[in-house]
């Protein structure tokens, strides 16, 4: 399973990479929207893209709009990972086709819960306690 991580911060890409690695993903990184579009062309289909909002060259919202206008990636889930929490702007991103938001800062559990919410495969163990 391929995951695309789009963020201009190398530190943030590293954090996302380590969480996704544990979930069994193959990770491709991109530094901004234009770079991400290239990576989409070069690789097999992605199950998911985690996208920052504010980036140089092409920002996250523009990238989302581009992807959603292009039917090649209809099955790819798009998650915005961002400090942006202005409800009006979040609405705009959702209308553009974002599946879910993760607000920075976040923990691995928060991200994994959100992925589960949108039906992305996360293979987490499930222990059972008897009463």
């Amino acid at each position: 399973m391929n995951a695309l991580v789009v963020d201009d911060s190398r530190a943030m890409r590293k954090i996302l990479r380590s969480i996704l690695l544990d979930l069994g993903y193959q990770i491709i990184e991109a530094e901004h929207g234009l770079d991400a579009i290239e990576k989409l062309k070069e690789n097999d289909p992605f199950e998911i893209a985690l996208v920052d909002w504010n980036m140089p060259e092409m920002n996250g919202l523009e990238f989302v709009q581009h992807v959603r206008e292009n039917s090649d990636h209809d099955n790819m889930k798009l998650v915005m990972v961002t400090t942006e929490t202005e409800p009006d702007r979040m609405v705009k991103a959702l209308m553009a086709g974002v599946d879910e938001f993760v607000m920075k800062p976040f923990t691995p559990e928060i991200l994994i819960d959100k992925l589960r919410l949108i039906g992305v495969s996360v293979n987490a163990g499930n222990q059972c306690e008897e009463l």
Binding site: P87, F101, V102, E109, I110, D113
Partner: peptide
């Protein structure tokens, strides 16, 4: 709210 609340419902 980040933990478990879908963005659509949050808004």
């Amino acid at each position: 709210v980040n933990r478990g609340m879908p963005a659509k419902l949050l808004i």
